[in-house]
Design a protein around this nucleic acid. Structure first.
Lengths: 182, 182
DNA sequence: ATCAAATGTTTTGAACTGTAACTATCACTT
DNA sequence: AAGTGATAGTTACAGTTCAAAACATTTGAT
């Protein structure tokens, strides 16, 4: 337990790296916006709806790691532009289910990559070991940061539509499950 | 062999981790705001000014990895609240130099940590090897992402304000200095 | 000296983001 | 049935963020 104390500088390095990553991510989102008319957050939400079918706001917000309010504003834009429709659930009128329209489904066909092109290329060339190191580090950081804030998670009782809501592990998977409700 | 091609899922994992990190960072910033009245970006800018002395907007923006426009809006808020003052440079009236006020210097004394408490604690307990892995991974990611957006700026060659940019004590005179640059 | 290009900052417009306050609805108790 | 508390979603507000356009000023060329 000797050299265990990171100096101030080490934290600063972490901070700087994080800020650069955040900035690059944001820049990429703006770039995607110019190319395809949708930002990365919008696409992420759209993909979540594609994957989950008729889905509640809360489920989306958990799935994409955004607050409910944020998801609402994103859904507003998506609905305005005709990529999704929202319908109140008949069983529980508090609930709003969002689904893709044809237009929304179509726009997803040509989805540009959600990560920076250059990053993806370089990342692919890295060799499995290195990639694993990076991914696990990112997840570790995410995890360490999240745990402070963990627990927006009341005992779920999947009543309305939900199947199960696993927070981690494979978030996006291309399976399909039609989960229609009357 | 040659499982070298990361599957779509691997990129998604990266994306998800990144989004969680970004979110956590933002949450922490909001938290800091509630505690000390300044957001993390505001503090970062303030710290940059503390470090660099009377400094231009462009220099700040490079130092903190934010666009000039963003720095300007942050400076607006900081000036409004009396933490800094901006003065136009006499030599070149396009240039604006920002410096701390006493109030600004004072508020920095009790700066809360710019990284999440819980994260810092856990990070400290990690052992040097693990920490190194994480830091280098973050830097790698930052680097891979940044290169797309290559810095349109060669290393600062101090034109207006003196040259050597030692990150330590400020010995900046914004007087003149014109020759140089043989 | 004057006009044009370059440079430094600010403004504008649009999006993301979260908390807190608010509405509507449901579930459960009395 | 009425009331209370929990839950789902939206709105209001404040802050960050960037690109692009608008300004202001300086520098270089004619």
């Amino acid at each position: 337990m000797a050299t265990n104390k990171p100096r101030r500088k080490e934290f600063l390095d972490v901070l700087v790296a994080l800020r650069q990553i955040i900035r690059a991510t944001d820049l990429h989102s703006k770039h995607v916006m110019k190319v395809c008319g949708l930002t990365v957050p919008q696409l992420v939400v759209l993909l979540a709806i594609e994957e989950l079918g008729a889905v509640t706001v809360r489920e989306i917000s958990r799935h994409v790691s955004l607050s409910q309010a944020t998801v609402t504003t994103i859904l507003n834009r998506l609905e305005e532009r005709g990529f999704i429709i929202r319908t109140r659930n008949a069983n529980d009128k508090r609930v709003v289910n969002s689904r893709l329209t044809d237009k929304g489904r179509e726009v997803l066909i040509n989805t540009p990559p959600l990560l920076d092109d250059h990053f993806m290329q370089s990342y692919e060339m890295l060799g499995q070991h290195e990639r694993g190191k990076i991914l696990s580090s990112l997840q570790k950081v995410a995890c360490l940061m999240a745990s402070d804030d963990v627990d927006p998670r009341p005992p779920t009782m999947g009543r309305i539509i939900t199947a199960d809501d696993e927070p981690s592990e494979q978030l996006y998977e291309y399976g399909h499950q039609s989960n229609e409700d009357a």
